[in-house]
Design a protein around this nucleic acid. Structure first.
Lengths: 345, 345
DNA sequence: TTGTACGCGTTATCAG
DNA sequence: CTGATAACGCGTACAA
């Protein structure tokens, strides 16, 4: 306390003590204090002790921001932009990525775009200003050409679940075609004859992919167009439940339904389980209570997808300038039902 | 390109262009470039144009890290430590907090402690080193006295779902007592006579609180101890399903079950729905498919809890040195069933 | 073993 | 209107 330098910190307690404060209190130079804090051997144990004592006294904690600025090292922060964290699919995606990144000592900064392309653009901008190490994005926007310069400079982007329009970059998507084919095959194996697909709006990329796949797959299987039903524009479980009720009322002959995502599947399951009509339901997405609702699903685990995206990012870090962008497609298959997670709040 | 200053950036494309680069290219001083980028009026529109052109040419983006270091402004990053992001409860918690913080322009950096106190301590340390603005923590550890100095200095902590042992700090918890009482009342109203509670291990604070509340509530309601059943140590849905099966086999007279969290409720519901035994189930936690499983729940919405914790943190920011720590207790009540979320992947 | 200069990218101060 | 210079907190290079 005999040093004027630390006075300002005494005035503003919110400011953390700096190396200068520690040095002042222990009566050494800043550099010596720095050496001690970094565990350098080049300092006498006597002064080292004094410095350490001062540090704990003041509650000193090194400022990683300043350190990184000085060293010029890359941040260990990875940004991730999803549309909604409360949605189990995106939460699982984030969980998978976070887990994998944590193994490499990387931290995740998460932002939600709420399916708003403009908001997403601002979020990405903000993350870039923060000089994150890389970015994992579930695209909400329609044009990513504005990121072209960053990409060319060697900044690492990975796009998940949907590709990024107008930008060459790494991406991980799901095998929507193969997945829908599996769903259909699964229903056909169970002797379903009249099959419906219930999906979100077609301006969502995955939805339109899956609908398209359904059309092609049913054609290949030589199903009569009169025996297939395509319902779109379903956003919520409630809408799905209602749509299913109407569908089965109008067409009681329907005996198989493909739900293109988890929320839709929950709604479909609600209706089919109540009506007790003999209709098989399969879900494109994996979700915890599927087996309770007698719904078979693909092994489309969002956590796995998240992990894959993290791994793609890590590989990109190794070779940032490589102009050979990878487009990984995660295979999905029908599976048995699985235990749900663990919780301990 | 006529300036040697930008040479190093030409060599290492990963490095972002700096103000110096922009200044060099546009032939002005760094400060003038800075003025332009910050929209200062104190500069002739002619040079402003030149600078702007150079900036877009180089793809300049201001470095927020350096700026904050210089200005000494607080970071707009808030750290959050939960135990598992793949768990819908914690994901909802994070979603609620993120949403509220985003309204204030604050970003969330998320880390998962995996119920490991040691790991959690490291995560907190790391976030502190990064000089986050504040910290929202779902405690996994057993002693937070090591944060005392930070707290005294005016650093903002908020603890959620459980209080922080050995640390005076703001916290938001759930009214576990009242909630369990509501669950019990709900079952009694439906003429249940023999009631069981199925819970996690008692060394989890919320679990032990809820079990304790159950004991007291059943005592107050003058239930014969022989008519109540307490099952603990249940971590997963599968364990819950199994435990329920065993319970109902040994004690077919049981006609009411309280599940102390969402995962347990899913497992209980699986069994009771299959067995078709006349047993009412209530869940302490709210979760999407509860109504499909004929489970009534409290309105214990993790998103609401997350929002509350963010708001408490924001209030703490206003008055960091206030030694009057708030202990908010979120009331929970029985409720009708609600639509589940929206998804569009 | 310890200290002095200097720089990371930015902004504030104060001069020109 | 514009530009040197110093500073934020820290680490590297080189002396002492």
């Amino acid at each position: 306390m005999e040093e004027p330098q630390s006075l300002d910190h005494a005035i503003d307690p919110l400011a953390h003590p700096t190396l200068a404060d520690v040095a002042a209190v222990s009566g050494v130079s800043i550099k010596t204090a720095s050496r001690v804090m970094n565990g350098s051997q080049q300092v006498s144990s006597a002064t080292a002790e004094r410095v350490k004592k001062a540090a704990t006294l003041l509650g000193y904690r090194s400022n990683r921001i300043a350190r990184e600025l000085r060293v010029g090292s890359l941040s260990n922060l990875v940004g991730m932009v999803i549309s909604d964290l409360a949605n189990p699919f995106y939460a699982g995606l984030a969980a998978g990525a976070e887990e994998r990144l944590a193994q490499e000592g990387l931290d995740l900064i998460l932002a939600t775009a709420r399916d708003d392309g403009e908001r997403e653009k601002n979020l990405i901008e903000s993350l870039l200003e923060r000089r994150v190490r890389g970015l994992i994005i579930v695209p909400s926007g329609e044009d990513y050409s504005h990121l072209h310069q960053e990409r060319k400079r060697g900044f690492s982007f990975v796009f998940v679940d949907r590709p990024a329009p107008y930008l060459d970059a790494d991406s991980v998507t799901v095998d929507n075609r193969g997945g829908v084919q599996s769903c259909l095959d699964h229903l056909l194996q169970q002797k379903c004859k009249k099959i419906a697909i219930i999906a979100d709006t077609t301006n969502i990329w995955t939805a339109s992919e899956r609908i398209e796949a359904f059309k092609q797959a049913t054609f290949r299987s030589k199903l009569d167009p009169k025996d297939i039903f395509i319902i779109t524009n379903i956003h919520t479980s409630d809408e799905a439940a209602l749509a299913t009720r109407e569908l089965l009322a109008d067409h009681p002959e329907v005996d198989g339904i493909i739900a293109t995502n988890d929320l839709i599947a929950m709604g479909v399951g609600q209706t089919t389980n109540l009506l007790k009509q003999p209709v098989k339901v399969v879900s494109f997405d994996l979700f915890p209570t599927a087996n309770l609702l007698n719904i078979d699903t693909l092994d489309h685990d969002p956590k796995r997808l998240g992990r894959l995206s993290a791994e793609l990012l890590l590989r990109r870090f190794e070779n940032p300038m490589d102009r050979n962008y990878r487009t990984e497609i995660m295979k999905v298959e029908m599976r048995g039902n699985e235990p749900v997670g663990r919780r301990s709040s």
